Amino acid sequence: NQASVVANQLIPINTALTLVMMRSEVVTPVGIPAEDIPRLVSMQVNRAVPLGTTLMPDMVRGYA
């Protein structure tokens, strides 16, 4: 089972991601792999991401 990136807090739209906003968790469906967390830092979300939501590739500008 692969860990995915999950929002550690509410992340408002257009917010640049920081390490404290994300955690890794084994979830279904699988989202962005946890090993990509360092790559996600400073990328912006293109929608509001509620606490506990799995980050999907289409939620992060420039990721996919």
Rank of each mutant, 00 (worst) to 15 (best):
P50F: 07
L19R: 15
L55P: 01
P33M: 07
L19I: 14
V30T: 11
A34M: 13
G52D: 08
P29N: 05
V41M: 07
P38K: 12
T54G: 03
S24L: 13
N46S: 14
V26H: 10
S24H: 08
M59R: 03
P29V: 06
T53R: 08
M43N: 06
V30Y: 13
A34L: 05
D36K: 05
N14G: 15
P33C: 04
L17F: 02
T18D: 07
S24W: 09
I32A: 02
S24T: 15
S4C: 03
V27S: 07
S42T: 14
V6P: 01
M59A: 09
N46P: 03
E25W: 08
I37C: 03
R61H: 08
Q9K: 06
D58I: 06
T15W: 06
S42I: 03
Q2R: 10
S42H: 12
L10N: 11
P50V: 09
N8V: 15
Q9A: 09
V26C: 03
L19C: 04
I32F: 03
L19Y: 13
T54R: 04
S4L: 00
T28L: 14
A16I: 14
T15D: 04
D36T: 09
L19T: 11
P29W: 04
Q2Y: 11
M22P: 00
Q2M: 14
N14C: 04
M21A: 06
V41S: 04
A34G: 12
V30N: 10
V41K: 05
I37N: 00
A16L: 11
M56V: 13
L40K: 00
L19A: 06
A64D: 13
R39S: 09
T28C: 03
N8M: 14
V60G: 00
T15F: 06
P38E: 12
A16Y: 12
P29A: 05
L40V: 07
G52A: 09
V20P: 12
G52W: 05
E25G: 09
P29E: 07
Y63S: 04
D58K: 08
M43A: 09
Q44N: 12
D58Q: 09
S42C: 03
V45P: 03
Q9F: 08
A16D: 08
S42R: 12
G52S: 13
G31T: 02
G62V: 05
S24M: 10
L51R: 12
M22C: 03
M59P: 01
P29L: 06
E35A: 09
T15V: 06
A3D: 05
R23H: 10
P50T: 13
L40C: 03
M43Y: 12
V6M: 06
P38R: 06
I13K: 14
M22F: 08
S4H: 02
N8Y: 06
G62A: 14
I32N: 01
N8K: 07
N14E: 13
V6R: 04
P50R: 10
V45D: 01
V26S: 13
L55C: 02
S4V: 02
Q9Y: 13
R23F: 06
T18H: 04
P33I: 11
S24V: 10
T28R: 07
L51V: 09
T28S: 15
E25N: 07
A48S: 07
V60A: 01
Y63G: 05
A48R: 14
D36C: 04
G62C: 04
I32E: 01
D58H: 08
V49P: 02
Q9N: 08
